[in-house]
């Protein structure tokens, strides 16, 4: 896995380019292939494009569904409406989401990668059994845990607080798995040996030397956890009743329920959705290299 795998992947990719010259599809076949892929790309892109266009429309234009008329461009208006709605609570939700997601993913990634590193570099009895427990955590979907978590939280008075959502989202067993894989790939044992010979402490070595090498892996874990927390819906829905603690996802859900009765809510829900999507799309486009390596590490044997 890991280092060799990545290297091998890179190599095979290069070699295959030459190999392909022999087995190239015919011109007709190529047309069909490109058409199919093009259709799929349209399928994935058009709804996002609709969101973009719809967020520039006022309510009436929205219901006329003439998205391409340039007559009434109300994006600015929609955005100012969005932030004025119900006393500007959307801004609050956005900040909450950022707090839950950025802070949660940062801490969660640190915790998971450190654990994964320890799994890779230290040996102790029953290590693999313990690791099996971690993997069991991957297999059990968090939605199943939400209800018992709620009951525990309400017994401890944590329910309907920031912590009731923040603490559970830190738990990222898959990050431990990735951390272990990355540690195998990126942190050679000799480096640690050298540090030990120099008399550096174990933790110092980790934070000064290993963590730097684990950087790309850390970013990958962070990015995936960021997405997961930003997407999180079930847990906040179970835990929170105070609207000022809501993340964007839950807030938009509540507004959407009003939109069904009061169509005035449609433009803010659409504009709010657009704003909520932007940071993640930006992160994924900018950090392409990292998440691809993360997916590869997880999937390639």
């Amino acid at each position: 896995m890991s280092a060799e795998t990545t290297e091998r992947t890179r190599r095979t990719a290069r070699d295959r380019r030459t190999a392909r010259r022999h087995g190239r599809p015919t011109l007709l076949g190529r047309g069909a292939v490109n058409a199919l892929v093009g259709l799929s790309v349209l399928y994935t892109l058009l709804p996002v494009l609709w969101l973009l266009l719809a967020s520039t429309k006022n309510r009436d234009a929205l219901f006329r569904s003439d998205l391409f008329s340039s007559g009434d461009f109300s994006l600015a208006r929609n955005l100012s409406d969005l932030f004025a709605m119900e006393g500007g609570i959307y801004g609050r939700w956005y900040v909450n989401s950022l707090l839950y997601a950025v802070l949660g993913a940062a801490i969660g990634a640190m915790v998971s990668v450190a654990c994964g590193y320890a799994f890779d570099k230290y040996r102790f009895r029953h290590k693999e059994k313990l690791f099996g427990l971690v993997l069991a955590g991957v297999m059990v979907p968090p939605t199943v845990l939400a209800l018992p978590l709620y009951l525990i939280a309400s017994k401890t008075g944590l329910v309907n607080t920031f912590w009731s959502v923040f603490i559970p989202v830190l738990f990222n067993p898959f990050g431990v798995y990735l951390g272990r894989v990355f540690s195998q790939g990126y942190v050679p044992g000799e480096v640690l040996e050298a540090a030990r010979v120099d008399g550096a402490g174990e933790l110092t070595t980790y934070f000064r030397v290993a963590l730097r090498m684990l950087g790309p892996g850390l970013v990958t874990v962070f990015l995936f956890q960021l997405t997961a927390i930003w997407n999180n819906f079930f847990l906040p829905m179970v835990m929170l009743s105070d609207q000022s603690l809501f993340p964007v996802s839950l807030g938009l859900y509540v507004w959407n329920s009003s939109a069904v009765v009061t169509p005035d809510y449609y433009p803010p829900v659409i504009a709010g959705s657009l704003l909520a999507v932007l940071p993640l799309i930006a992160a994924f486009v900018l950090l392409q290299r990292y998440w691809k390596s993360g997916l590869t590490a997880g999937s390639v044997k």
């Binding site: 230290y122 102790f124 009895r125 029953h126 290590k127 059994k129 313990l130 099996g132 427990l133 069991a136």
Partner: peptide
Amino acid sequence: MPGSRTRTRTRSTR
């Protein structure tokens, strides 16, 4: 899994 934890003699785990 719980069994393996209780019987463990390894300090770090414990």
